[in-house]
Amino acid sequence: MSLIELKGVSKTFPPTRKGGEPVHAVRDVDLSIESGEIVGIVGYSGAGKSTLVRLVNALEPTTSGSLLVDGTDLTTLRERQLQKVRLDIGMIFQQFNLLGSRTVWGNVAYPLEVAKVPKAEQQQRISDLLHFVGLADKAHAWPEELSGGQKQRVGIARALATSPKILLADEATSALDPETTVDVLRLLKKVNAELGITIVVITHEMEVVKSIADRVVVMEEGRVVEHGDVFDIFSRPAHPATQRFVATLVDDVPDAAALEALRRRHPGRLVTLSFLDESVSQSAVFAELIRRGIEFELVFGGIEDVRGRTFGHLTVELRGDASAVDEAIAAVGALVETREVA
């Protein structure tokens, strides 16, 4: 059974103004998240990502549908029982949301106080957590004395305090610089690998998805428009929204403007070869072209590495006898996905 299971989940907010329209923030979402995975949820602003995770830890009630977390249907629970469920779900935020009235130590202590963990046990737990996130020396610092990355580490320690099964990260790295982002993502990977905690990361940065997610969920206007294994999403994005997101990171197929520029410099036939899995080697394709005496030149493209697997798109210009080129395109097409682009 999945750890988190949404079936036909919708969330509609009443109109914010009198006479306004209700907001359909989440619409009919089916989604399963397995124990131990890292799932990335991407979508543009207003797509409903935050609302979706706020449904998962019951900060908002669903409007319809069923929502199972670890086998319990949250839609049937009362507030008191939901508070217990929330102890099993950690959450970190873009703005860190540390309590300014407490030190680092006090912040990590907060969920333990809520969970009524005995004082002596708290001490040990907090100390362990601060070591885990690498902030043992900052235990008595105040939040405003920390850098963004350190604040997020405190946020992570705090979220892990009650040993949750799930960690929800809402834009957890969006306020951080690239280097600090990498550090925090590394820490999240460690949380997943060493503690076996299932992580849901909301982001609009494909870089984040590429670096930690096993699976990707793409949302648009409250709906899940595409989901799949991270490699598949990057190598074969199907929905236009997904394609736009992937294009922010992977820019290996020439767009119209780039094609026009290429055309001016390259009079031969332009063909894009897509190497989407590792079964076909590029050398086999090039050997085929050489064998047929076709002159070729690489004019555009790139090879991407997604979690240890590679894919790429190479655009080549082919020159030679017209019918020989035709035959070569057909032959190469039998080896690898081939598309004549101009």
């Binding site: 830890n57 900060l59 507030e79 008191r80 508070q83 217990k84 469920v85 929330r86 102890l87 779900i89 959450m91 935020f93 703005q95 949301n97 540390l98 309590l99 300014g100 907060y110 969920p111 809520v114 969970a115 705090r158 979220a159 009650t162």
Partner: peptide
């Protein structure tokens, strides 16, 4: 900051 209140609720605190 409402975010801080939300964080506390997310940690299982009652209203």
């Amino acid at each position: 900051d409402p975010g801080v209140l939300e964080a506390a609720r997310a940690m299982g605190a009652s209203r």
